[in-house]
């Protein structure tokens, strides 16, 4: 599926990552970026039956949590 960002927006993503790519390589990766955007959307899609913007969803404990419970 085609990406929904412009070449300039894609260039900004590359710059933020600190990556400098030749034009051909950049174009090839931009061409498939739409598939990654679909994945970005999929991981933000709530499970069946869940409200998308509920307080419960926002406050759910993140999966990556720092803990010292084992040292207590």
């Amino acid at each position: 599926m085609p990406p929904t960002i412009t070449e300039a927006e894609f260039a900004a993503l590359l710059a933020r990552a600190g990556l400098t790519l030749p034009a051909g390589q950049r174009a090839g990766i931009l061409a498939v970026w739409g598939a990654v955007q679909a994945m970005q959307a999929a991981v933000r899609t709530p499970p069946p039956g869940a409200a998308p913007l509920s307080a419960a969803a926002a406050s759910a404990e993140p999966a990556v949590t720092y803990s010292l419970a084992g040292d207590a």
Binding site: L13, L14, A17, G18, L19, L21, Q25, G28, I29, V32, W33, V36, Q40, A42, V43, R44, P47, A60, P62, A63, V64
Partner: peptide, 29 residues
């Protein structure tokens, strides 16, 4: 590999954490 790795560099911390949160949900389901 070089081109595949670039994709990871373009993702955000929010993408990663959303995926880890989704992982717990998928495992529970």
């Amino acid at each position: 590999l070089r081109d595949r790795l670039v994709l990871g560099g373009l993702l955000t911390a929010a993408d990663y954490l959303a995926a880890q949160k989704k992982r717990l949900e998928l495992t529970a389901r």
